[in-house]
């Protein structure tokens, strides 16, 4: 039995989102089971059924030099704003 990852699209034009996984011996069974589990209540307009083996997982993101300005939280504005206001005399 193979594990299959199922992604579902709720409405046309929307991105596919991970719905869950199932086990099935082959593609035909996987499609049938995906249909039953993620499609029979009108909750999806389309499904992607992907063997887990086909998913290339990436889970390492080295940042040895601490270049934190690449990150969302790496460039705090609060302090800079306070300084700027002080310089302008509006703080």
């Amino acid at each position: 039995m193979t594990v299959w990852e199922v992604f579902r699209q709720e409405r046309k034009g929307q991105p596919f989102q991970h719905a869950g996984a199932l086990t099935a011996p082959d593609e035909r069974f996987a499609e049938e089971y995906a249909r039953e589990q993620y499609g029979r209540r009108g909750e999806s307009v389309a499904l992607w059924v992907v063997p887990r083996e086909a998913v290339h997982e990436v889970d390492e993101f080295p940042d040895e030099l601490q270049r934190n300005y690449h990150r969302v939280d790496g460039y705090p504005l609060k302090e800079k704003l306070r300084e700027a206001r002080a310089r302008a005399g509006t703080g």
């Binding site: 039995m1 086990t23 099935a24 049938e32 089971y33 039953e36 589990q37």
Partner: peptide, 11 residues
């Protein structure tokens, strides 16, 4: 025989 089939066959 297995969970997925249980769901499908019940349906």
């Amino acid at each position: 025989p297995f969970l997925e089939e249980d769901v499908a066959f019940s349906s």
